[in-house]
Computed example of a mutant assay.
Amino acid sequence: MEQKKNVKQNKGGRNPKTNPSIHRHVFRLTDEENAQLLSLFEASGMSNKAKFIVAILFSKEMKAVKIDKGTADFYMRLTSLFGQFRAVGVNYNQVVKLLYSRFTEKKAAAFLFKLEKQTAEMASLCKKIIELTEEFNQNFLQK
């Protein structure tokens, strides 16, 4: 019976922290100061306001990330457009193979002539997209 008394019983629950935060400080802010603090907190991207304040007090490195919805939307649309161009390239190769395997050389050449016109049109469109992207980068992203 004496052996059981010397053994610690497991109470369960959370493991105790090695260095718990037990000291509390309270301060008051004006409306303008509070608005500034909240805007800095939102810009930091941190999820805990107390950790944010401690990081500012002790000059820890803060990362502020601004996400521009217009830029993100432009990037997503440009990415989807690039995917569509890749799909057209794959289909282009398949069409050329089918033309030569299913039609005579004369008919295949006629269809290829039409396909070349469309390809030239797509190439000019692609150049225009590249120009617009570079213009967007210079005007909006490099500020």
Rank of each mutant, 00 (worst) to 15 (best):
L99N: 01
L37P: 00
N93L: 12
S21I: 04
F103V: 01
Y100W: 08
K11L: 15
Q118W: 03
E131C: 04
R24A: 11
D31P: 06
T119C: 07
R24K: 13
K4S: 12
N34F: 11
Q142K: 13
E134G: 08
A55G: 04
G89L: 05
T30F: 00
Q94H: 03
N48Y: 06
A110T: 07
F113C: 11
A64W: 03
Y92T: 12
I22V: 12
Q84G: 06
F111P: 00
L78N: 11
L40M: 13
S44K: 07
E135T: 06
I129E: 02
D31C: 05
F41C: 07
K128R: 07
F113V: 13
F58N: 13
L98W: 05
K8W: 05
L29C: 00
S101N: 12
Q3Y: 11
E42G: 10
D68Y: 15
S21P: 00
E121L: 09
L98S: 13
P16I: 09
L81N: 01
Y75I: 12
Y100S: 07
T104Q: 07
Q3D: 11
E131T: 01
L115D: 01
R14V: 15
I67Q: 12
I130Y: 05
T79D: 03
Q142W: 02
T71R: 14
L81I: 12
Q138V: 06
Q138C: 09
E131W: 00
T104L: 11
A35C: 01
D68L: 08
R86F: 11
A108K: 00
K60D: 15
I130M: 09
K4R: 10
T30D: 06
A109G: 00
V26F: 04
L98G: 05
E116L: 12
G45P: 04
L132W: 03
T18H: 02
Q9I: 10
H23T: 08
E42M: 14
K49L: 15
L57T: 01
M76W: 00
F111L: 15
T133E: 05
K49F: 04
F113A: 15
Y75T: 08
N139Y: 03
A64E: 07
L141Q: 04
V88A: 14
K143S: 06
A109H: 04
H25I: 13
Q94A: 07
Q142G: 02
E61S: 13
L132K: 14
F41W: 03
Y100Q: 06
E116R: 14
G83Y: 10
M76N: 03
L98V: 05
A123H: 04
M62I: 15
C126Q: 05
Q138W: 02
E33Q: 12
V88P: 08
V54Q: 14
K127V: 06
I130S: 11
K143D: 07
K8A: 10
I67V: 14
K106E: 13
Q36W: 09
K66S: 09
M1D: 11
K106I: 11
A108P: 00
Q118D: 12
F82G: 06
V7C: 02
V90F: 08
D73V: 07
Q142T: 05
I53E: 02
M62A: 02
R86G: 15
D73C: 07
N34E: 10
L115E: 01
N48V: 10
